[in-house]
């Protein structure tokens, strides 16, 4: 029990700040990576990660320890990601700013060759397809948990996942990785 998420969450609800620090250490990396694959920008992914933890901190009293903590946290992170993507869209609709999602040289350096293949393929997917495939294959979550995080039926998760894999396959064929 000592180090389970639920135990740490309860400890934090009871005022133990160290428990929250441990949760940050545990989930900082997966959340950052999910965000990065969604927004393709190192700084934005860091902002999403930070905002997700701040929201979790503020709302910790609403967390029910009988549910999985990471599902709850990922749900917050996914909402933060969607908010950022929507903000970008609105900005592009009303302003003539260059698209904010262009990867910086720093972002390029962070990705190895395989990472580039993958990112290019992800770019060809809709948001709905991308988030499902990232949660499934990057975070290795089962259908049921993805459904819970995204608030959609499992059947929809499957159909989005299968269509996103089809896009992934087609794009990787185009890039010459899949033959």
């Amino acid at each position: 029990m000592a180090d389970t998420d639920a135990h740490l969450a309860i400890q934090f609800q009871n005022g133990d700040r160290k428990a929250f620090t441990m949760l940050v250490a545990r989930y900082e990396k997966p959340i950052f990576n999910t965000a990065f694959r969604m927004v393709k920008n190192f700084d934005d992914a860091a902002d999403i990660t930070q905002n997700a933890f701040i929201k979790a901190y503020e709302k910790i009293d609403s967390f029910n320890p009988s549910y999985k903590f990471f599902n709850w946290l990922y749900k917050i992170a996914v909402n933060e990601t969607l908010n950022l993507i929507n903000r970008r869209k609105r900005r592009r609709e009303f302003e003539y700013d260059p698209p904010a999602h262009l990867p910086s040289p720093e972002d390029d350096l962070e990705l190895n060759e395989m990472g580039h293949y993958l990112q290019k393929a992800l770019d060809c997917m809709s948001y709905d397809q991308r988030i499902v495939i990232v949660l499934k294959h990057l975070l290795l979550l089962p259908y049921s948990e993805i459904a819970n995080i995204l608030g959609i039926p499992e059947k929809t998760v499957k159909s989005r996942l299968f269509s996103s894999r089809h896009v992934l396959r087609s794009e990787l064929i185009k890039q010459g990785y899949v033959r």
């Binding site: 190895n112 294959h137 990057l138 990787l172 899949v178």
Partner: peptide
């Protein structure tokens, strides 16, 4: 093969 790409991609450090 396409799905296998994910296994070859390392998670980035924040």
């Amino acid at each position: 093969q396409a799905v296998g790409v994910f296994e070859k991609v390392d998670l980035l450090d924040p």
